[in-house]
Simulated assay, not measured.
Amino acid sequence: MTFTEELRKENEDIFSLIFEHQFVQGIGRGDVSKEALTHYVKADYEYLNAFMKVYGIAISKCASREDIAYFNQRIDFVLNSEIHPHNNFCEQIGVSYEELQGFSLPPTADHYIKHMLYHAQSGTLGEILAALLPCPWTYFEIGEELIKQYDPSPEHPFYQWISFYAERRVEDTVVVMCERLDKLAEVASQEEKTKMKEAFRKSCQLEWAFWEMAFTCEEWITKKGVSVNEKP
């Protein structure tokens, strides 16, 4: 069993909870509320901005041009391809993508980003990949699960979102990330592998929490009540 196969097996509980989450199942049924979709896009836009910055930090730790090129390709994918599922949600909300950009982060998204940045700044390339991998991996499997459960037609309101994450290039992203992480794990100390496993599991847990954050429209609490997610 490879290192990433171990990771997937050890985190089956979290993956299953993600597939069962009300927001994820709502995508499959096509009935997610506009409020939840709006909250998701606002947070995910900023999350993906941070994701690209973590890739940039990974580049600064690379020893070869091959590794630099790999992370540069990943930045390009997030920057130019992952706008498509966001636009699908925006079409259902009835607002432009630009209108949902630049908002402050809800608590869970803020924590998730800081979790990734912590491993990027203080950890090895193995830790960075372990912290990043659950995002594309869970989304790819969500796409697969929703196709199996709902077999959406092109008329389904979230057909574009589901088909995007279930397609081959997202699967290839996961496969290549797993291969790279497996190679790093082969030469890693037991201490480093433990840190990689901890980073991976926490990211899985935060993936579930991100869906919950969007579904409940989570906001920061203040003495006067819940604050509104506004542009800073």
Rank of each mutant, 00 (worst) to 15 (best):
K183I: 07
R74W: 01
P157I: 07
H156L: 05
M177A: 13
H115V: 05
P157S: 11
P157E: 10
G143R: 11
Y139C: 02
L132V: 05
T124K: 10
P136A: 01
S122E: 15
K197Y: 13
I147S: 09
Y150V: 04
A120N: 05
C178W: 10
N72F: 11
Y139K: 02
E167T: 14
Q121S: 05
L129M: 15
Q160T: 14
I83Q: 06
H115M: 09
I83Y: 03
C178I: 05
L129R: 10
E191T: 12
R169P: 03
K193M: 00
V187F: 12
P107A: 04
A166F: 12
Q160M: 14
L184S: 04
N88M: 12
M196T: 10
A109N: 14
A199Y: 12
V187Y: 10
E91M: 09
F140A: 02
H119C: 04
E198T: 15
N87W: 06
L132K: 03
L132F: 04
Q92R: 13
H115Q: 10
M177T: 08
H86A: 05
G102I: 02
I162H: 11
R168I: 10
I83F: 08
C135E: 13
H156G: 08
M116W: 05
E198C: 13
E186S: 00
F77G: 08
G102Y: 00
Y97K: 06
E191G: 07
V95C: 08
E198F: 03
L184C: 02
D110T: 01
R74S: 06
S122H: 13
Y97R: 14
D76H: 15
N87K: 07
L146V: 02
Q190W: 00
E186K: 13
A130H: 14
A130Q: 15
E98C: 03
V95L: 00
P85F: 11
L133W: 04
L100T: 08
E192A: 06
L105V: 02
F200A: 06
T138Q: 06
E141K: 14
Y150L: 10
E145S: 08
V174A: 03
T124N: 12
D151F: 12
Q205K: 04
E141T: 07
K197D: 04
N87Q: 01
S96F: 07
Q73P: 00
E82C: 04
S81M: 00
K183L: 11
S96C: 01
L125H: 03
